[in-house]
Design a protein around this nucleic acid. Structure first.
Lengths: 213, 213
DNA sequence: GTCTATACTTCGATAGAC
DNA sequence: GTCTATCGAAGTATAGAC
């Protein structure tokens, strides 16, 4: 919409997302990002101060977009159960639009956030927070049994991120003819998770004293 | 048990595990591994041919040990439900003994296995396979509803690995005073997962036609 | 804003003495 | 088997012309 569509910065961020997802911060090569974005390397350093600054900018943006998606769902008028199912579908859709996201997320958890500044860490923290809010609503309203929202976050999002980030290595392993490694499509895994979570969050059937074995 | 307890190779592997977990393959420094293991760098290259060879040796060993733990549980005479709970506890115990494991696992999934050879990939594949076998037994025996064993693997192990690997970054975020980021101890999360999985694998209560809404 | 050429640094790996 | 010293390849970043 701007006067001249200065494609450079966005093209650089898109190329950086691919490179950082595939190789990680240390393994990523600035030359390769520049080549992928079809810009000169000096141009990259002109727009972003350093490799680290580029990385932080990219991650802040990604985490903010992902959290926004979840916040929209949290603020909707749907039932808690539908919000939880919607959160899983929403994150799967977000990843379909931003393919490098899950691998970057996995890497950053493993890194322990060492390359991130406070702002970027806060942007990252907004993702589990938005998710936890949805679960918290469901527990407070009595729709779910008492589950810890942060625990629920890990038990729902981790499988999704893991499964979608794991497509390349499953493909590698598949080449070795290892039994049971046909990779089923993401949509089927999302349905599995929706089903699993619905069952796992459901309140216990009411007994006389509400106490099970 | 050997004549002279040549500590070098094992010390190098232990130091490498820490370094690769913290920094990844590309970020790891051979000098740092040697210093951590208190051996000369040339000695490291004498025992292991290269950084890549050291990495593959380490991962092959780790994956093989983890898979063996699961295979033992799979071969036991416990009920499927107990095996599943035991697999979660067993993996948590394995990670307690091998702290670098979850971060390395996360990184390798994100890497897509690019640094691994066929043997190491097969060792990695043995982990989900052993896990899938346990779930498969439960489904076949009628103890569980029909769940895809590989899907079940991702929905159970990913949260555990993610949660345990995520301790450092949660600590970082906690320093920023972000709400809801007190990190609860691993044992509590294991219980949460055991509970969640038990509910999620349970067969539907028998209705007249076995068909729900 | 854009490019070329290059300075400076780090790192994996080895040669060669003991 | 063990160590010191160092080579050569990459890799981040910038200077300076246009």
């Amino acid at each position: 919409m701007a006067r001249l569509p200065r494609v450079s910065p966005d093209a650089i961020l898109a190329a950086a997302a691919l490179e950082f997802a595939e190789r990680g911060f240390a393994g990523a090569r600035v030359d390769r990002i520049a080549r992928r974005a079809q810009v000169n390397k000096a141009m990259l350093y002109y727009h972003f101060r350093s490799k680290q600054h580029l990385y932080r900018t990219l991650l802040r943006r990604m985490f903010t977009l992902a959290a926004a998606r979840l916040q929209t769902i949290a603020a909707s008028t749907a039932s808690p159960a539908d919000k939880v199912a919607g959160a899983l579908a929403g994150m799967a859709a977000f990843i379909a639009e931003h393919a490098p996201f899950p691998r970057i997320m996995l890497r950053e958890v493993a890194e322990g956030g060492v390359h991130l500044d406070a702002d970027t860490l806060k942007a990252l923290a907004a993702v589990p927070r938005a998710f936890g809010a949805i679960v918290h609503q469901g527990v407070e309203s009595g729709a779910f049994r008492r589950v810890d929202p942060m625990f629920a976050y890990f038990s729902m999002l981790a499988p999704l991120v893991f499964y979608l980030a794991g497509a390349p290595i499953r493909k590698e392993i598949g080449h070795l003819h290892v039994a049971g490694f046909r990779s089923r499509p993401p949509a089927e895994f999302v349905r599995h998770m929706q089903d699993a979570v619905r069952r796992s969050f459901a309140r216990d059937p009411q007994r006389k004293r509400g106490r099970s074995s």
